[in-house]
Simulated assay, not measured.
Amino acid sequence: MSTGGTGSDTERGRHETPTERWDRNWVDIQQELRIVQTGTQILAGFLLTLPFQQRFTSLTDRQETIYLVLVVLAVVVTVVALSAVATHRLVFRQRQKHDLVRAGNIILIVTLIASALLFSGTVLFVFDVVLGRIGGIVGGAAVFIGTGVLWTSLPFALRRTARDETD
């Protein structure tokens, strides 16, 4: 599995068997999921403490709805990320590492998309409570757009660079 460009892994100096490559890819996915999950767990913990704050009782119906959507989204991100672990457990020693890596890649992408929604929704919620509805919309949209631009433009730029180097 080539990581970009037209050259094979061997041509670029990586000497590994397909099994070693799948193992390395799986370890990469696990590490990336750990990073996402840690941030999400911290954010979920923050969200779960809010109802115990005095100011929570002054939320509008809209703010309560946003809050509840965020709690559900935090749970969804965690469950989706953990589905990679569950999948690994269920196919353990079944010689399906290549399928696991493919599924793990999809799981990680879905987790990142849901995380972007969670991060921007949290900013929307906090800004809404502190600055009002317009401030919440502007803050949430800025985080969502900024995350989307950063998470897509950098990888696409790196892919283009890898192609340019092999030409």
Rank of each mutant, 00 (worst) to 15 (best):
S2R: 11
T3D: 06
G4A: 07
G5F: 01
G5P: 02
G7K: 08
T10Q: 06
T10K: 09
T10Y: 00
T10E: 07
E11W: 00
E11V: 15
R12Y: 00
R12E: 02
G13D: 00
R14G: 11
H15Y: 05
E16Y: 01
P18G: 08
T19V: 03
E20H: 04
N25R: 08
V27H: 05
Q31M: 13
E32L: 07
I35A: 12
V36P: 04
T38D: 01
G39S: 09
T40E: 02
T40Q: 06
Q41Y: 05
I42A: 04
I42L: 11
I42H: 03
I42W: 00
F46K: 05
L50V: 07
F52D: 07
S58R: 07
L59T: 06
L59H: 08
D61E: 08
R62Q: 13
R62C: 06
Q63D: 08
Q63N: 08
L68D: 04
V69I: 12
V77E: 00
V79Q: 04
A81L: 02
A81D: 02
L82M: 14
S83H: 08
T87F: 00
T87G: 10
H88Q: 11
R89W: 02
L90P: 03
V91D: 01
R93I: 01
R95W: 01
R95L: 09
A103E: 06
L108N: 15
I109W: 02
I109P: 02
V110P: 10
A114L: 10
A114D: 04
S115I: 08
L117R: 07
L118D: 10
F119A: 15
V123F: 00
V123M: 02
V126M: 03
V130W: 03
L131E: 09
I134C: 06
I134H: 09
G135R: 04
I137Q: 06
I137H: 03
G139V: 03
G140K: 07
G140V: 01
G140A: 04
A142C: 05
V143P: 11
I145G: 13
I145Y: 04
T147E: 06
G148Q: 12
V149H: 05
W151C: 14
W151P: 11
P155L: 04
F156T: 15
A157W: 05
A157I: 09
T161D: 09
R163W: 04
D164K: 13
